[in-house]
Every structure is written in C-alpha cells, then in structure tokens.
Design a protein around this nucleic acid. Sequence first.
RNA 1: GGAGGGGUAGCGAAGAGGCUAAACGCGGCUGACUGUAAAUCAGCUCCCCACGGGUUCGGCAGUUCGAAUCUGCCCCCCUCCA
Length: 373
Amino acid sequence: MKNLKYTLIHQDRDARLGQIEINGYKIETPCFMPVGTQATVKFLDYRDIKDINASLILGNTYHLWLRPGEDIVEKAGGIASFMHYDGPILTDSGGYQVFSLADRRNINEDGVTFKSHLDGTTLFMSPEDSIHIQEKLGSDIAMSFDECIPYPSSYDYVKDSTLRTLRWAKRGLDAHSKADQALFGIVQGGEYADLREYCAKELVKMDFDGYAIGGTSVGEDKQTHYKMIDDTIKFLPVDKPRYEMGIGAVNDILTAIEKGIDMFDCVLPTRIARHGTLMTSKGRINIKKSIYKDDFSPLDEECDCETCQNYTKAYLNHLFRANEGLGNRLLSIHNLRFLIRIVEGARHAIKEDRFLEYKKDIISRYHFDQRGF
RNA sequence: GGAGGGGUAGCGAAGAGGCUAAACGCGGCUGACUGUAAAUCAGCUCCCCACGGGUUCGGCAGUUCGAAUCUGCCCCCCUCCA
C-alpha cells in the first residue's frame, strides 16, 4: 500500500489529465488497459503489447488461481515476469466471475464457492484469499474482492450485496500486506443512487489507493449506465485514481473521461477482433463480409497500427475466411491500438482544454448501432 | 462384352412408402459480444406477392389413397473381370 501516487496534472471541466506512479512506472491517465485474463492478452505477445502503447494490462485472479495456480506464477517472479511483459499489471479480484459464472457459484458472508469451469471442482474464495492470491500473482495494483451485481436487481438484493462487498473490502484491506502492491476498492450499489453514495463514502473512509466503479455495463441502458457513474464519482477523492471497470465502447470511454474517470479496461476490442469485427474511425465493420474480398485498402486510413500500416482489408478478409490465427492477432492489435489512440488523443485534448470538441468530433464520425456501439 | 456399386439442395452426406422442403457437416449470409467458460454464440440458407402458397431428391413412364423411398425403360458416374 501507499506505493501508488496519483498526480492531477490538468483538468478540463471534469475530465482529468493525470499521472500514476507505481513501482517505478509512470502511467499517464486517462488510460485504456487491455485485458489479459490468463496472463496473456489473447493472441498478442509482449512486443505487440509494447507496440500498441498499452500502459497497463490486466490479469485475472480467478483464472490464474485455477490455472496454472498462484504458486507457479509466484515462482516465475509474478505475472509480468511470467509472461515476459515489461510493464505494470492490475489484477481483477475474481469479483467479475461472481457475476459471469453466476450459475456455478454460491455466495455467503465468508466468500464465494465456485464450481470450477475447467473440471467442476468445488473451490472456495474468500476476500482474504483473493488478496493473498493477488499478492502471489505480484500485480502492481490489486482489486478488492466484490460481487459484480447483475442488472436489473431489486433494491433489497443490491443493498445486501453492496453492504457485504463493503465488509469484504475491509477484510481484504486488513489482509493485504504487500508493500509494492496498491489496492483499489470497488464501488457497487447498482442503479440506486443512495447505495452508490453510501458505498463510495464508506470505501473512501477505508482509504484505498484508488477507487473503481464496478457493476456497470452489465446489461443496463446507456442512460442508467452514465447515471451510475454520476451517482458515484462525485463522492470519490480528487487525489486518487478512478477506474471504471469493464468499459470499451468508444462513446462509453469518451463519456467516462468526460465525467472524470482515469482508467478503464475491456475485453470488447479483443473479443470482437477475434470475431472478425474491427473498430474504425467511421464505426464498426465486420471484415468477413464479402465486400472486403477485393478491398485492398487499409482497415482504417487514420490508424498507425502495425496492421493498418502493412495489411489490407482483403488480406484480413481472407485470413478470417480461412480461419487463420494471424487474423485474430492483426485485428486484436488494431482494435486495441485504435482505442488506445483515442485515449491518447483525449489526453492531448484535455491538456489543451478542448476535450468536449474532441469527443464530439470522434463521435460524429463514428457510426454507432442502435445500442450505441 | 460381363459382374457389381451409385446418381439427394452450392458441395459432402443421411434418409429406403405417410411423422420429409428432406437430418448432419462444410460453404454462404445476417446479427450479438463491455472487470474473457467466448479464434465464441444465435438466426437464415429450393422458389414466391411468404403466420400462407408453389415446385423438388438424374430423366421419363408406372404401381399406390400417398413415392426421394417400389417397378420398367433410358442417361450418366465408379470399381472389378474380359
């Protein structure tokens, strides 16, 4: 704890340009963090991660606990060393798996019993376990063990769950002892403003190194999503980083930055890349469509990524039709670089007090679907 | 010339009298994906004026209330023997 320092460099309305210093790393914020659940950003190697200019990547406690096991990762010298990645790592606590693996787990006050998705083994994770596993995984930033609450959920359910998450946060904080690892608290509270407020205030009293907004983008509409940010962020301290977990749609990221969020992560760019969809400055396109069979233009004229510099839509179309793994890698590189570049642009715009114009410009050129992707 | 086997939707391949517009796979076309059980998943894929109708299973002619499925002839393909 206390190994993390956040400096607010400049503010443009609520949008923040800042810097996180941790374990010798300097991370400019806002920043987008690629997700590397099982100690790999799927299909990318350490050079690719460096090339897209990722400032931080995620690992996952639940997945690495199951395989290869935290002891192996510890022996390897931590996740970063294990995957030969030279940069900071943040680990999610397993709280998201309480949500995504809902049909194979049970929650009680002590923690969560999971039935392993790999072999069905019954396994128990307490908030203390999550912290101890993360200490062994050796991430630079650990997250509190929480329940990511589904939407919609009743007020009573959300209240009970959020209060339990708060108790878990305290238990995790007390269990945490690794000096070179920061620990963030996660605000839950669902769509209920009073619960968001209470949860945020209680976490702030505990004095974490940073605060995350959890339980968003779990199926709610945009209006509700953005209101959950508003209902939370006003209670978070200005001198600590704020992280909205699990967002990766272009307008979600820009909106979060506008509201004062500093960090976000998402599987969206890499997942849709593997499914043949790329994000471009004009919107999302599916590279598998036959119209790209003989389209020898780059994926995105404005992009500086390795893929756009060297390959054509026709080639990517062919790779996907032929089910060649290179297509997954090239599209993942592109989508990640695309989002990271948007966030880099946001940092410049904030510095020059023109963030809103920047956001408006990006959005106006991006064709969104009905749900706003 | 003789003996077998076979021709089913774009391709491969089930089906051997009604439950069949015809399984399944591939290919093709849509759509979904937000702290990764996801190189995944869902839908469509004979034609049309489409909660209904029209034509199909090499071709033609039959048997039957009813045929992709049974019979006859014809066409084509494969294997083996001369």
